[in-house]
Design a binder for these strands. Structure first.
Lengths: 199, 199
DNA sequence: TCACGACGATACGGTTGCGTTCCGACGTGG
DNA sequence: CCACGTCGGAACGCAACCGTATCGTCGTGA
């Protein structure tokens, strides 16, 4: 007489298993990309990760804290500021990194999804701001400051507006319009952004 | 003996009542802004509109067709193209209209929510594109063409990229960053966009 | 005048996810 | 060597919403 139901795989030990934790993390990103934060469920995450619901609840107390934790981990990474020696070079490098990130299929779904959710949930707003916006703002602020020191930009250039001019068009194109970028688009965009900043 | 439960209000006639239809429409926008498309339910709409679920199902067969119908109604309106006689004036007028729309609390929630949903649902994508993006693209295309005729822009200016440069920064600022606009921001942005286009 | 059909209300069975609680299996650290 | 605590799995009661059906009420158009 064989087992009527297939026996489950060997279980863990008296310590949270890191491979299980990692599987959950990965599943959250996939689920977030596939259905969005609003539709995402703990059951769906556990199903996708191939773990029990209990494994999730043992680590996080809710869907929100789970996502906040993951987003926070992103924030800790930080974003390296380019220092190419010219405003155009710096802007172009920043746009290159950003366009690479926003073309990633998971990121291009997750980021706007969380941004929309942030408009309804202050906790998400804070986490996303810290993870994405603050980093970009910091980089742009530094780029502007260095350009001002070189005399490429006026001293009183507003870094906030600079961020809008540099990142706004790319985000609009990649996330809102969602049309493929023609060759040389990022270069053209960097050129346009520099012209806009100097105006 | 009085009524144990309060009797319901007088009911309708053998024709779909327009006031009920309108109440549902309004409730959909409010619900869409409050909880988003993903979380929105027919029951919630009926509750908010103060009507029975049947009144909704009598008009639309699903949440999706309901939203598609409403979005489609927006598309029909069309967007007037400014003709101020100068590229700066036209761009400024367009940004003025757009910033006014995106500052409306309902629109600033509903539009990005539907755009995110559009990335997952082709039907929503088509409706939103027709309702919002095509209109804006058309206006920008005309503005660019007229500016080219005046010699303000090169003949080969790409209208698609022009839309990115004009609308992108404003959308980023109002919908993504969600920071209040300083005085004169739209004027500065129009100036910057014109400089970017000419570069 | 009166049949028709929309109205709100209510109830139905079904589905999904919630958060919790068991369970037996299992491996690690004391 | 063995107690501890995690493992996946299963089931729990609860809540919300689905889409449909059936009420009695009531206004309109023929």
């Amino acid at each position: 007489m064989t087992e009527p139901t297939p026996r489950r795989a060997p279980a863990g030990a008296a310590v949270l298993r890191e491979d299980v934790t990692e599987a959950i993390r990965a599943a959250v990103f996939e689920e977030l990309a596939a259905v969005g934060f609003a539709r995402m469920s703990i059951e769906g995450i556990a199903r996708r990760a191939g773990v029990g619901k209990t494994a999730v609840y043992r680590r996080w107390k809710s869907k929100l804290s789970l996502v906040l934790d993951l987003v926070g981990a992103f924030a800790a990474q930080g974003l390296p500021a380019p220092a190419t020696g010219s405003l155009y070079g710096d802007v172009r490098a920043l746009l290159e990194v950003a366009s690479h990130a926003l073309r990633h299929p998971v990121a291009s779904q997750v980021i706007p999804d969380l941004l929309v959710e942030a408009a309804r949930n202050p906790e998400i707003a804070e986490a996303v701001t810290a993870a994405l916006l603050d980093g970009q703002q910091g980089v742009v602020t530094q780029i502007v400051r260095e350009a001002a020191e070189r005399g490429e930009l006026p001293e009183d250039t507003d870094p906030g507006r600079a961020l809008d001019l540099v990142v706004g068009p790319l985000y609009w194109r990649l996330v809102v319009v969602r049309t493929p970028l023609p060759p040389g688009y990022v270069d053209d965009l960097a050129r346009s952004a520099v012209a806009a900043l100097k105006a």
